[in-house]
Design a protein around this nucleic acid. Sequence first.
DNA 1: CTGTAAATTCTAACCGTTTCAACCGAACGT
DNA 2: ACGTTCGGTTGAAACGGTTAGAATTTACAG
Lengths: 341, 341
Amino acid sequence: MATIRDVARESGVSVATVSYVLNNGPRPVRDETRERVLAVMRRLDYHPNAMARGLVRRRLFTLGVLFSSVEPTVVTNNYATCVLRGIMAAAVQAGYNVTIFTRPWQDARRSAARFGDRRTDGILVAAPSVGSDVVSGLAQRGVPVVVVSAPSGDSCVPWVDVDNARGAVLATEHLLALGHRRIAFLMGDGTQRSVFQRRDAFLATLARAGVTARDDYWLPGSFEPEVVYRNVTRLLNLPEPPTSIFTTNDDMAATTLEAARDLGVRVPQDLSVIGFDDYPYKGVGAPILTTVRHPLAEVGEAAARLLIDRVEGRGDGQREMVFQPELIVRETTLPPSSRLN
Amino acid sequence: MATIRDVARESGVSVATVSYVLNNGPRPVRDETRERVLAVMRRLDYHPNAMARGLVRRRLFTLGVLFSSVEPTVVTNNYATCVLRGIMAAAVQAGYNVTIFTRPWQDARRSAARFGDRRTDGILVAAPSVGSDVVSGLAQRGVPVVVVSAPSGDSCVPWVDVDNARGAVLATEHLLALGHRRIAFLMGDGTQRSVFQRRDAFLATLARAGVTARDDYWLPGSFEPEVVYRNVTRLLNLPEPPTSIFTTNDDMAATTLEAARDLGVRVPQDLSVIGFDDYPYKGVGAPILTTVRHPLAEVGEAAARLLIDRVEGRGDGQREMVFQPELIVRETTLPPSSRLN
DNA sequence: CTGTAAATTCTAACCGTTTCAACCGAACGT
DNA sequence: ACGTTCGGTTGAAACGGTTAGAATTTACAG
């Protein structure tokens, strides 16, 4: 494999000169010389070694992505896929590659140095769990970090998220406006702050409307499909089952529909279901989910842009971005059937 | 940020010794010395610089993934997501990171050197289009390559794929066995070899059964949802519409269901639909697609394993792997309704 | 003790770039 | 004719590691 020295030798100039033509600077090169060097580069099929470059430039034009958990299924679930799509969009545009870290974050002491080993120019931390020191750990080590879909505890780390509370308000108010009073909230597991934000806003909205949150609708939170399925079954078998269910995300809503179907509960006639996130399911068949649109790809894209700006020294003070959710009424919500009330 | 030299100085040994403890070799280090060095490393929060290491070791423990097209949507479509899931699984297990290239492949002359710039230890090329010189270009430059879901023209480049022909046979025979004779094949665009393999097997199976492939069911191939939708509409409005449609992949099948629904054609009563790939849709509602299961994640995982074996010098001659597809009969296929025949 | 082999450790070259300080010649102002 | 700039070029010092070869200890037999 040809190196810069080969090019220099073949074209009768110093390596410095070759480097200058390679980078268009920082010193000028006479046109005639440049042409000669370029010709040799082409002839030798030369391309600079990324490692050597990265070593001295301390830049590799690569963004790191760290998901809270690195189970391969987690890296490729709906949430991650959507965020990744946005990240890729920003990366493509800015000419960055994207590296997905596969080693799980353990704690700052053991992991910060590893992830900050200059393999990437900066790191996007997606959906860190509440107790984790991943963000502060990296930030403290001087690694440029942007948090995706979670506020950063660390005040100097930029973050991008949707307005979770607002989304939950939209969903809840929609159900209330339809006339629902028996509304259950199906909670995801308690490692994400967004889950709590959505729950709190749900409860607050209910309270504001003078509707009491029933204890028997309250079940332990989890994103696990099996648990969700079981919880829904339990809810629908209650003496007074809910007439509508609001889930923490669309995957849970899908599982809810499945469980309802298996119980012979018709959606939306007997049960309204509303999700959150609006994953772009290719809906294989009806009904199509009513949900709160969470612009995940845009969130990912904005976060990646923010990170790129930071590593390129254009940190224009932008510290946080909050996207507004939007209620998407489709086919899984209706007024509660009188039969059940 | 602490360097190996800092550690050496602080612990009163040479950098070589520090390196030996870092890598457990190649020379032994006395226990007492090792402890001292490790203590200093911990105290200084030292972690070796990945670039420097990569430069001399010529290994970064990172796999590159190159999708035929790098539209961000392509990188995160169903196909790519499934393959990526498998790749991640293998990578996690072997301790590799995964870099997704964002610059599109142009041609060997312009791109080979760029992608072989030692930023990754090897490259997984996913679904290269038929005319592309991406595989040969990289291979020729000495970059370890494994092709995902396409046979490699280059005989010395390993590849992994599903048996596309067999899958199409399974689907077609299923429809024939149900009694369908008016069967349409909806073709994807002609840049992937697998599309042709599926089509050819479809036609061959039809011929073997003595069923003629009708010209009026033959439409220009495309994966674009709009085109698919239009094609399906055209088919179903034919004087003698097909009683069943076999699509090149599940996304197309989903669009087919949508178009049928919009036309008031009931699936599976009036029209049977069978897809290919079995993407793990969270089926939001019925009917659930009958399809040919293509173990995409396993394909990706196997390919990644093959690549890792190669870069680690354990190339045990394994050159190609073909996975067997499986017919998954669900809810979108039935015998043709007599009404229509 | 001494000689010798084995176990450690050190010195220094190297991996392939970038870039700074220095140099050289030509053009320029005076 | 003579400093001064300035465009163009170069040698060499980083960048932060690995590792071969030499040097130093240590272990052990005689």
